[in-house]
Amino acid sequence: MKLDGMASFVAVADAGSISEAARLLRLSKSVVSDRLAELERSLGTTLLHRTTRRLSVTEDGAAFLERARRILRDVSDAATELAERRGALAGPMRISAPVTFGRLHLGPALYPFLAANPRIELALDLDDRRVDIASGAHDAVLRHGTIDDSRLMVWRLAPSRRVLVASADYLARHGRPQTTAELDAHKGIFYTNRGVADWRFATPRGGEIVRARVGLRVNNGDMMRDAAVAGLGIALLPLFIAGPDIRAGRLTGVDVGAEAVREFIYLAHPEGRRPSAKLRALAEHLKTAFGDPPYWEEGMN
């Protein structure tokens, strides 16, 4: 049984297709198919159901998948540990992060880190959907918000302040709310990946939940900002998205006498797995690069 066959199987199971797995592995589709066939012959079973329309993991394949992931992870960790014993940060590392934060802030912080550590092979998945870090497909996930999964170990990278914003045109047409109660009469632009369409505030009386009328629900922070600039409603946005538009006058802060519940930028990794030296080094680099308070909040009242 060869490790490259296992790696191909895991990649196909995660990607859902041989062609996508081949692209991620930088191999031809025929090579991946041959490795899968050889693995199935060595195991004496069928791991994948293949049809013209879809590909799925068999019952035997599902049983083998988690062990294959563990074996590949152990081999990678062993190689990484040897490299670290020689004082080098090296080897593969896969991280998931939100699209907007990744594009605006994570990328610029990552590039000098990777340039200084050229032996690290980073795979960065930008996706606004929450990934299951406990599955073992990623070494860590970068998230904005709160961490509720008890299976995760969390490193706080930076605080993240969120503010209500709207365009001057919207406020001229619909009025400027002065209290949280007045938000009920306004249209809201909401982030769908948070579930319910509401805003949560911290007040001297405790937490307060506000549900404005839905003007737009969307799963991307860039589009929320653009919709607010276009005058479609009020949005609750982190300053790492809204800051430049507030400074440029395209968006205006809306003060309702209460601050949104404070959130943070986190790097989380599975509980029970010792984080590699390169992951710890990345976390420290990002904390320094973002700052506390973070640079994107400079000059914001």
Score class of each variant (00 low, 15 high):
residue 130 R to M: 13
residue 131 V to Q: 15
residue 131 V to I: 14
residue 132 D to H: 12
residue 132 D to R: 15
residue 133 I to Y: 02
residue 134 A to R: 14
residue 134 A to T: 14
residue 136 G to T: 09
residue 136 G to V: 11
residue 136 G to A: 06
residue 137 A to K: 14
residue 138 H to E: 15
residue 139 D to A: 04
residue 141 V to P: 04
residue 141 V to D: 07
residue 142 L to E: 05
residue 144 H to T: 13
residue 145 G to N: 09
residue 146 T to F: 05
residue 146 T to H: 05
residue 148 D to F: 00
residue 148 D to R: 03
residue 148 D to K: 05
residue 149 D to T: 06
residue 149 D to W: 04
residue 149 D to P: 02
residue 150 S to H: 01
residue 150 S to Y: 02
residue 150 S to I: 03
residue 151 R to L: 06
residue 153 M to Q: 13
residue 153 M to V: 09
residue 153 M to N: 08
residue 154 V to D: 02
residue 156 R to M: 01
residue 158 A to Q: 08
residue 159 P to M: 08
residue 159 P to F: 07
residue 160 S to F: 04
residue 161 R to H: 11
residue 161 R to G: 07
residue 162 R to E: 13
residue 162 R to N: 06
residue 164 L to A: 07
residue 165 V to Y: 06
residue 165 V to S: 11
residue 167 S to E: 11
residue 168 A to K: 14
residue 168 A to M: 05
residue 170 Y to Q: 04
residue 171 L to V: 14
residue 171 L to Y: 03
residue 172 A to Y: 03
residue 173 R to H: 13
residue 173 R to A: 15
residue 175 G to I: 10
residue 175 G to H: 09
residue 176 R to W: 00
residue 176 R to G: 04
residue 176 R to K: 13
residue 177 P to K: 04
residue 177 P to Q: 12
residue 179 T to L: 02
residue 179 T to K: 11
residue 179 T to G: 05
residue 179 T to H: 03
residue 180 T to M: 13
residue 182 E to W: 10
residue 183 L to R: 11
residue 184 D to P: 01
residue 185 A to P: 02
residue 186 H to I: 00
